[in-house]
């Protein structure tokens, strides 16, 4: 696992350096902007795509094939990608939270007593959702169909659900969308992420190279 993490970090540093700079820039800008919605969520969206980018690189260099000759089980190979995904999303979320807190303090003239902290859990829940749902859907598809086809299937699936959502919202405009407590949203995202990992392991253990 440690060897794989080291290899992926090497690849991240070499191929995704500009992305890391963009993430840092957006997070910083988000801290100073009055309307930071886009600047806070964009870094999380970007970082959520990292494991998919790394799997694509592995495929391109045929590292995924070579890896089968190493003493690393397929389960560990998959787990490493999920772990890296979780860690990178966590780091970016923490940075975004720090930027958001700074922004809230700045707007309140650094008077913590007048800040409405109640919006923070909602903000965190949205970041977690954005950071985990995309890899949860994408990674199993990429393992099943490969990087190119997997991406296509992902866009088709997402497109289908968006269209379905649009139809439902038009036909049932009176329908109320239930609101969930923030911790439940985070929990559901984590459970989805776990289910996605299980599916990916099952797919990868049966994969023929």
């Amino acid at each position: 696992m440690k060897g794989l993490l080291k290899k992926d970090l090497c690849m991240l540093w070499n191929y995704c350096r500009s992305m890391i700079l963009i993430l840092a820039a957006f997070t910083l800008v988000g801290a100073f902007m009055e309307d930071s919605f886009f600047y806070s969520f964009y870094p999380v969206l970007i970082v959520s795509m990292l494991p998919v980018t790394l799997i694509s690189y592995d495929e391109r260099f045929k590292w995924d094939i070579y890896c089968q000759s190493l003493p690393i089980s397929r389960r560990v190979q998959v787990t490493e990608k999920y772990l890296l995904s979780l860690l990178s999303v966590l780091v970016v979320i923490l940075c975004c939270i720090a930027a958001q807190i700074y922004r809230m303090l700045d707007m309140a003239g650094f008077n913590a007593s007048v800040i409405h902290w109640g919006s923070l859990p909602q903000f965190v829940a949205m970041l977690v959702g954005l950071g985990l749902i995309s890899p949860s859907l994408m990674i199993p598809l990429i393992y099943k169909f490969g990087a190119e086809k997997g991406r296509m299937v992902f866009f088709v699936v997402v497109g289908f659900f968006c269209a379905l959502g649009a139809m439902v919202s038009v036909k049932g405009s009176m329908m109320q969308v239930p609101s969930f407590p923030e911790f439940a949203v985070i929990l559901v995202c984590l459970v989805l992420f776990g289910i996605s990992w299980l599916i990916s392991v099952t797919i990868y253990e049966k994969k023929q190279f």
């Binding site: 060897g3 080291k6 090497c10 260099f61 070579y66």
Partner: peptide
């Protein structure tokens, strides 16, 4: 194992490969 193509990511150096394999084997 040595396959017909040696499949290391092309950004890695021999030094990187040694450092990675130290944690693999």
């Amino acid at each position: 194992v040595v396959m017909d193509e040696v499949n290391f990511p092309d950004c890695l150096t021999a030094k990187n490969v040694g450092s990675i394999m130290k944690d693999v084997y």
